[in-house]
Amino acid sequence: MLNNLIFINTTRFFLLILVQVLILNQINLFGYINPYLYILFIIIYPFTANKSLLIFLSFLLGLFIDFFSDSGGIHAAASVFIAFIRPVILKYSFGISYEYNTIKISSEDYLKQTIYVGSMVFLHHFIMFALEIFNINHFLLFLNSILFSSIFSIVIILCTITLFSKK
């Protein structure tokens, strides 16, 4: 059972990196909008598992994406941040009970799912674009990127969760 979990998460880790850099980074809808599906790994990582390990894995995940997109450490920083803040977001989207009974994200109702995924994606994109653009002159570009990329990412992540859930 434990080995199975490790295997699934390892496969997911590398599969998401490949999908992100080979397909999703090439979309460039309207010139600058890309979805960032890879944070799905952090979103559906088992809720009760070791938190330090998650923070470290998120750092590696972000760093791999940075390797491919020549962006310094922006993905790593944003991923580490949402991995660290995840317990707080879990608490206010699913209630205090998430730690004791094993909730499956795909079996929760859509409103709770959207709140959880939405907050994670928004925080991630906020930090990422803030670090990438890093210039007050391009403030409008910053807001645009956050808004449209967030919508795109949230839709894709929710679709993926629904598509791959075992019911």
Binding site: F56, S71, G72, G73, A76, A77, V80, F81
Partner: peptide
């Protein structure tokens, strides 16, 4: 890890 990523970004 966060500070390390910021360091890489600023570089």
């Amino acid at each position: 890890l966060f500070l390390f990523s910021i360091f890489l970004t600023i570089q």
